[in-house]
Design a protein around this nucleic acid. Structure first.
Lengths: 142, 142
DNA sequence: GTAGTTGCAAAGTGTTTGCAGGCAG
DNA sequence: CTGCCTGCAAACACTTTGCAACTAC
């Protein structure tokens, strides 16, 4: 995924039925500049480097909009903040509980079998797998 | 797991090196009254039915203590609050995104193979699997 | 007396909301 | 003009913290 241009990003947004306003394009530019796990604040900071005129509220609104439209994914690994993942291909996560670092695991690298029976009338929306790791030897600090 | 007595709970706490104070025993009584996914507020409410003298701060402190000691598990499925799971045997979760309902899936019901290579010096602390489900037909509301 | 524990209220963090003003067609 | 977007600041929900009072030994 090469660094996208404003035009290609605007095109992507339109394709999802999203009106490509200036702020939304800027936010998408940041998100798609690389596959990463962004907090809302990181996105806000990223956007305002190049274009110092996007508000926090707009960032939150836009991130929610993008999630609804399937452009990005929410990643919930930490109770205290949501990350937004610009990699929407099937994958799971490795979470370093010490550093907070999140790493992707290709879905093809893990096989899950034996899907449980869902309650009737329910459909699966998605499956998250989070492998929590930490630096060895840390033992039982705290 | 039958409803525990204050004595058996105190014993459990001591076994983990936890000083079984009045409040801690009350909190453990609530948590162990049944396997469930408790929010801090639910625990606070539960404790204060029978013993209206435990503060919010103590509930939070105690829950954290219990997690550290392995008596209960944190479940992070929702960005906005932490649940505490009094079932510490290996299992995964089904999460109903509409109702917020969390259901256990026995670990034996799911098989995961192909553990990815960890970064060197890292050890696995645990693996969470969350299957997000929702009521069929809801389609693309909002 | 000492160390560990608790309660209170205030502070903190990430996120959401209400609303007036702006912009595009 | 009209409806969608945006920015601001206040509001929110959950959690954490500082600190004085308390308890057990």
């Amino acid at each position: 995924m090469p660094t996208p241009t404003r035009e290609s990003v605007a095109e992507t947004l339109r394709a999802q039925g999203i009106n490509p306003t200036r702020q939304r394009v800027e936010i998408a530019m940041v998100l798609f500049s690389r596959h990463a796990h962004w907090s809302a604040d990181q996105v806000l900071a990223g956007v305002n480097i190049s274009h110092p005129e996007t508000s926090r509220a707009t960032v939150y609104n836009t991130l929610k909009l993008f999630v609804d439209k399937g452009l990005i994914r929410e990643v919930i690994v930490d109770a205290s903040r949501v990350f937004f993942d610009s990699n929407v291909s099937p994958h799971y996560h490795l979470y370093d509980v010490d550093s907070g670092q999140i790493t992707d695991i290709k879905a093809s690298a893990l096989t899950v079998s034996g899907a449980p029976d869902l309650p009737p009338g329910m459909i699966t929306e998605g499956m998250d797998i989070i492998i929590r790791v930490r630096r060895e030897k840390t033992a039982s600090a705290r």
